[in-house]
Computed example of a mutant assay.
Amino acid sequence: MATDDPTSIRTLAVTTDDVVAALEANERRDAGAVLRVTPPFSGRMRARLHLAGAEREYDDPAPLHLPPEMFVDSVPAFPTADRTEDALRSHPERTYAPEIHREYHERAVAAWRRAVRDRLREATTIRTPEGPHEVDLAMLG
């Protein structure tokens, strides 16, 4: 049964790709990416990738904007280009070249994405106007 009460949510379904993309967008450029849950609320809801502030006005209740970090046990450090360049230059058996750096960086980002996927939670606590509310997570994909 649909309601205005977000505490009726028991399970949030979200794609793994949306969680990874939101985290990466925020790491790369502080994009304000969230996972949005749009009312009316029910026992099983879908959280979708969204940019906070990029929506029309909603009546009460407003959609829930959930930070992607809440879907992951601990977010690993994102491999910036500067960090991967430093790692490559300090590697005793590798020679630095821009093309080698690009490939090295791409592999580091791919490894980061896999690490995020390996750390997805089975449940999380969302903030509602009524207070904290525990929900199960159904990770899709």
Rank of each mutant, 00 (worst) to 15 (best):
E99C: 07
T16M: 05
F41M: 03
D86I: 01
F41R: 04
P92K: 03
H65E: 10
P76Q: 10
L12D: 01
P68T: 02
A47Q: 05
S42D: 04
D59E: 14
A31P: 03
R56I: 04
F78T: 02
V116D: 01
Y96R: 04
H91P: 06
S42F: 04
H50C: 04
R102T: 04
H65M: 05
P98I: 00
T84F: 07
A22P: 06
D59F: 12
L23T: 04
R113K: 15
P68Q: 01
L88P: 08
R48L: 08
H105A: 06
S74K: 08
R119M: 02
Y104V: 04
D17F: 07
E55P: 03
V109Y: 11
T16Q: 12
F41K: 02
R56D: 03
E99L: 15
R10C: 00
D30E: 12
A87F: 07
T16Y: 00
A47S: 05
T80N: 02
A54Q: 12
T15F: 06
D86E: 07
A110I: 09
D17V: 09
P67A: 13
V116F: 05
E57I: 11
A115W: 10
T15C: 03
P63E: 07
A25R: 13
V14C: 04
P67I: 05
D60N: 13
E69I: 06
R48H: 07
G53Y: 09
V20K: 06
D82Q: 11
D86R: 14
A13K: 11
E93R: 15
A77I: 03
F41Q: 02
V34T: 10
L49F: 14
T80I: 03
A25K: 12
H50I: 06
V34L: 06
P40C: 09
T80P: 05
A54D: 08
T16F: 00
V75S: 06
T15A: 07
A108W: 14
S42P: 00
E24K: 15
D86T: 08
V20H: 10
G32T: 12
E103Q: 15
S90P: 00
P79A: 01
E57W: 12
V109L: 15
A110P: 08
W112C: 01
T84N: 08
V34H: 07
T38V: 14
P67K: 11
Y58C: 00
D60P: 10
R114Q: 10
S74T: 04
A81N: 10
R102Q: 10
E57R: 15
L23I: 11
L88S: 01
L64V: 05
E103N: 11
V34K: 12
I100T: 15
P98S: 03
H65Y: 14
L35C: 00
R44I: 03
A22I: 10
L66Q: 05
A52R: 14
A111Q: 15
T15L: 02
R44M: 01
G53H: 08
S74Q: 06
H105M: 11
T11E: 11
D59G: 15
D73C: 02
E69R: 12
V14F: 02
D30N: 14
L64F: 14
E69P: 03
I100A: 15
V34M: 11
M70D: 10
S90W: 09
E24D: 13
P92M: 06
A25N: 13
G43H: 04
T11R: 14
R107S: 04
G43P: 00
H91E: 10
D30Y: 10
N26A: 07
A77F: 03
E57Q: 13
R83L: 10
E106N: 13
D86S: 08
